[in-house]
């Protein structure tokens, strides 16, 4: 039986010092609300509530948690804390700002600066197939500044995708949803297993045993996939399928008339299945994007190693 959806807190509910206005979204791990603080400033509040472990029914504020799930629920909370802990140290215009953290209703809440605008996902839907090169370059150049800051703090985002890239009305992109930074989750808690988004997750994310394979290049794959999605107006083929049978048409071949070769090559570079072949740091990627004359390095690796990496990922 698939887990049931959780019921959000109702409008007007007084949550600590905040008043709930409405639910912004409901995910498998958490609910996000628009709320107002004492000064009537809007905030976004994320409630830790994995529906595989904790269920809230209509009319209740407290979720019910089965006895055998309490330890796992609390363990997942630890991961929610990790996200808050890391985000708390990051103060960057292109990374969502955390304002407060508190405990209520037997769970925990993260209060964020409320951003006005829409997600890149919504933007792509609205401008299907007509997103210009200059838009992609501007948005991603700024976003990469934020991501660089994230990596500097030894945190990986691990769920970068158009719906987690928020476009503020002033044109600044903001990286949101560090929920997948639940990177501390181990494989022995299947109930909390992070859900990756097909199409945007890097191949090494499917291999949950080897968490040490994750690195800046993992987020960089997702950046490439998000740029690809801007051009295709659809998610690219999922990495686990690509490993079986790679049907992803390289950006260079697909849009040679529409975008510059250098941008297309950079997208393909980011989307290498072999993480060693991708830009190894955000800085390297930024350099490649900024230098329009640069030729992206051709594959240099022995076929031997590539085979090994593939065999390994399987």
């Amino acid at each position: 039986m698939p887990p049931q959806a959780n019921v959000p807190l109702p409008t007007g509910y007084q949550l600590d010092e905040y008043r709930i206005e409405r639910q912004l979204s409901l995910g498998g791990f958490s609910i996000v609300y628009l709320a107002f603080d004492k000064e009537d400033t809007p905030v976004a509040i994320k409630e830790y509530l994995p529906n595989s472990l904790a269920l809230r029914s209509t009319g209740d504020a407290l979720p019910s948690i089965a006895e055998e799930n309490v330890a796992t629920f609390r363990y997942g909370m630890k991961c929610f804390f990790e996200e808050g802990r890391a985000l708390a140290k990051i103060s960057h215009p292109n990374v969502v700002r955390v304002l407060n953290f508190f405990r209520a209703n037997e769970t925990v809440y993260m209060v964020m600066h409320y951003e006005r605008g829409r997600t890149l996902q919504e933007h792509i839907q609205k401008h299907k197939g007509e997103i210009r090169e200059s838009f992609i370059r501007t948005i991603f150049a700024r976003l990469l500044n934020g991501l660089r800051e994230v990596h500097t703090h030894k945190l990986l985002h691990l769920d970068i995708k158009p719906s987690n890239i928020y476009l503020r009305n002033d044109g600044q992109p903001v990286l949101i949803d560090f929920g997948a930074a639940r990177q501390t989750l181990s494989t022995d808690t299947p109930l909390l297993k992070p859900m990756y988004t097909p199409g945007f997750a890097a191949p090494e994310q499917y291999n949950s045993i080897r968490r040490e394979l994750l690195g800046p290049w993992t987020d960089i794959y997702s950046i490439g996939a998000s740029m690809y999605a801007c051009m295709a107006a659809a998610a690219p083929q999922a990495a686990d399928q690509r490993i079986e049978r790679d049907q992803l048409v390289p950006a260079v071949r697909r849009w040679q008339d529409k975008y510059s070769r250098q941008l297309l090559e950079t997208v393909d570079w980011c989307m290498h299945l072999n993480y060693l072949e991708r830009p190894q740091s955000v800085f390297a990627l930024q350099k490649a994007l900024a230098d329009k004359d640069r030729i992206v390095p051709r594959q240099t690796l022995l076929g031997h190693l590539r085979k090994k990496v593939k065999a390994f990922i399987k």
Binding site: R85, F102, R103, V108
Partner: peptide, 17 residues
């Protein structure tokens, strides 16, 4: 542990904002 984690996070938020 939970209380301590929350306090630490809020302290970090203050410090870095």
């Amino acid at each position: 542990d939970i209380e301590r984690a929350i306090q630490e996070i809020n302290a970090a938020i203050k410090k870095f904002s």
